[in-house]
Design a binder for these strands. Structure first.
Lengths: 151, 151
DNA sequence: ACTGAAACGCATTCAGC
DNA sequence: GCTGAATGCGTTTCAGT
């Protein structure tokens, strides 16, 4: 179960995944060994899915973000087109959306030329009918941190 | 500059932000102190923006994901509505989009009831004209990890 | 589930190159 | 920008409760 101590741990790790167990222990008033045990269980239970460094996209040469709606014709419940999309480098997120037979795909590429190549690649997938892209001009906020209310 | 060693470091930390410096040092064949120095510079230069634990949304009671297009009427170049949206709990991402006078907002909430509350809240912002939401049925992939090619 | 002690490994500093 | 040694701290295990 996720008691209040675990909520505190999750919030600390969401803010800075490299916080040491000793540091967390100090913040929530327990021994480091207790924190280690809790974090291991949270990982084993799938509550903590991983720890990601957030890299500046521009520094990685990826200056263009696009959200692309990919319309598909596939069997209901099938996940294969989505997984194919997910495997393309530069495709960061793939979400299947209600009421549109389509995937919403978050893409990061170098420039419009690379986006064109990617859209061509996606368009070549047999189950894909068409795509509709929206270019991001400015990203105001971007985080995976969930609001977890402590008691 | 981001040389090949830094690319390796970034890729390791993108996959697991809690990898120890000693471990990274072994993987890329340098001393731990060299890794520490490199990581500090990458942080100082803004290349590494942070380290986030990824928490299972369902475990946090957030079973519903929505992408909502928020149309606004504000001065061109203004960022204030976007920042207002970004400050709402459950709003994870805010992107200003080309050619539509609107923000694409990624939302995570408990259920449709909470989504309705959130959309009402957003609708009450004076600069907001209307919203158009797409519910996510299934998330196939969700990551912030950028493709960084090593030489 | 937690503590506390012990052993081990890691982080960090710094001198030298 | 890196190494290597030294110190202090963190991690991890485990016995005990």
């Amino acid at each position: 179960m996720i008691d209040n101590a675990n909520k505190k741990i999750l919030n600390i790790l969401q803010k800075n995944a490299r916080t040491t167990n000793a540091d967390i222990a100090r913040q929530i008033g327990k021994a480091p060994s207790a924190i280690l045990e809790r974090i291991r269980k949270l990982e084993a239970n799938g509550v903590i899915q991983g720890y990601e460094a957030r890299v500046a996209p521009l520094a990685a040469g990826l200056g263009l973000t696009s959200f692309t709606l990919v319309s598909v014709e596939e069997e209901v419940g099938s996940t294969s087109t989505g997984e194919l999309l997910a495997s393309i480098p530069g495709v960061l997120e793939v979400h299947y959306c209600a009421g549109q037979d389509s995937y919403l795909v978050k893409i990061r590429v170098q420039d419009t030329e690379r986006l064109a190549e990617m859209l061509a690649k996606i368009g070549r997938i047999p189950t894909v009918k068409n795509t509709k892209s929206t270019i991001v001009l400015r990203t105001v906020k971007e985080s995976s941190n969930l609001p977890i209310d402590e008691e």
